[in-house]
């Protein structure tokens, strides 16, 4: 099934929303695993978004200009004895696209809604 150009799918909306939540907490940039954890937390999902699905969505968002990415300074990664991270950041276009997507949702609620609650 082909998607309409310019339309955000639910996962992309979740990624952009989670990135803004992280930014409000002081993390302006995020890497794949971090955003997967944040999306899982916000949606109260059982498991993290699949590798292929997540990185394909990040790739799509970046190509659409809604995210931008850079590779972390190798010195920092070496200092912490871990591989380099690819750090993403939501662009102004990304914020606008998210606002539009949320406004066009039937219930029009600009908040992440848990799919499941742990009661």
């Amino acid at each position: 099934m082909r998607r309409k150009p310019g339309l955000l799918v639910p996962l992309e909306i979740s990624i952009l929303e989670a990135s803004l939540i992280l930014r409000s907490r002081g993390a302006a940039e995020f890497h794949g695993f971090l955003i997967a954890k944040e999306v899982k937390k916000q949606e109260a999902a059982r498991r993290l978004t699949a590798h292929g699905t997540l990185y394909k969505a990040l790739d799509r968002l970046e190509k659409a200009g809604l995210l931008e990415s850079r590779w972390e300074d190798p010195g920092i990664a070496a200092q912490e004895h871990r591989p380099r991270r690819r750090l993403y950041q939501t662009t102004t276009a990304g914020e606008k696209a998210l606002a539009q997507a949320l406004a066009s949702q039937p219930d029009g609620q600009p908040q992440l809604r848990p799919r499941r609650t742990n009661v």
Binding site: A50, H51, Y55
Partner: peptide, 17 residues
């Protein structure tokens, strides 16, 4: 198991990518 399921569920997207 988390890693395994993340791989399994994302494999079709990997191939599409």
């Amino acid at each position: 198991f988390d890693i395994f399921f993340r791989w399994l569920l994302g494999a079709p997207d990997d191939l599409a990518w």
